[in-house]
Write a protein that binds this DNA or RNA. Structure first.
Lengths: 150, 150
DNA sequence: TGCTATGTAGGAATCATTCCTGTCTAGTGG
DNA sequence: CCACTAGACAGGAATGATTCCTACATAGCA
């Protein structure tokens, strides 16, 4: 879904994030997709319209957006960091074949709790559930292969 | 809990893992702790008794153990990979302050499911739940700091 | 419009992990 | 008990995502 520049600026101001062309481009690229891109993906995307864009700016901006609560880092296994413009509480479904990550919005999952005996004195603030399996396209391969990922 | 060398050898043979001193030492170090050590932690631990041990052997062995189903990789956020000798299905509780990881064994969590509408054609094989918060020691700091980790 | 704190570009540095290569050895068959 | 060979080990080099550094540019404000 295409995101209105006005709306981007409004969100930035609401979260006290200084508005620059680079930032707007990076945030737009992130917020307009549900594919959980890597920093490199975003760099390549925004570079098309901003040839001077540096990788550093992408990393720096992702840090700013994250701290402002406009983006989230998603980590699956020990792979490259991926980013998510969806900052609502949600969970993920990961394909062990192609690596795609799909958002799962489910109130039941959001309300999971841990027994106080298990909590061992922790003050629990939240949780995250990651389902893994094979997507429709990867299923034939996935069912034969006994491949497991960490 | 100290692990009998006989028992280690038995597990290796049962999982078709060749028995070597280095491997036994690495596996012992991993299986005798619940602290989810990093490769570097394990390296330092085993190096005390095996000064010739190379970092490479630790990484290689962890790969072997993982494929054999004797160890698991645990990833929290985008930090260094950590390893777990507990291969039963279980979940984790992570301290945002000190980074400690505590095992959570809970049948309810093991049985979580996703609705088929949410599954989007995926063949789901498993899932993993990660709770995050502040441990007893980190709570005073944690409650004041608004620090969040990805 | 000018000031200043902050952002940006680009290159260098870091560091966990992997790759490479030349020994070495566990496990097996004679 | 000995020799063979596939697989394991040590150590150093290479990789690659991310961070650091620094000089220049610009957003936001008075």
């Amino acid at each position: 879904m295409k995101l209105d520049p006005q709306e981007i600026e409004a969100r930035f101001r609401r979260h006290a994030v200084r508005v620059t062309r680079q930032r707007a481009a990076i945030y737009a690229a992130l917020a307009e997709t549900t594919s959980h891109p890597t920093a490199e993906d975003l760099y390549r995307t925004v570079k098309r319209q901003h040839p001077m864009m540096s990788r550093n700016t992408v990393y720096y901006t992702l840090g700013v957006l994250r701290q402002a609560g406009l983006a989230q880092e998603v980590n699956v296994g020990h792979e490259v960091a991926r980013f998510d413009g969806n900052v609502a509480v949600h969970h993920h479904l990961v394909c062990l074949g192609c690596g795609q990550i799909v958002d799962v919005m489910d109130d039941g999952l959001n309300q999971l709790a841990i027994s106080s005996r298990q909590a061992r004195g922790f003050h629990v603030l939240g949780h995250r559930v990651e389902f893994h399996g094979y997507c429709a396209d990867c299923q034939p391969a996935g069912l034969s292969a006994m491949d497991r990922r960490g």
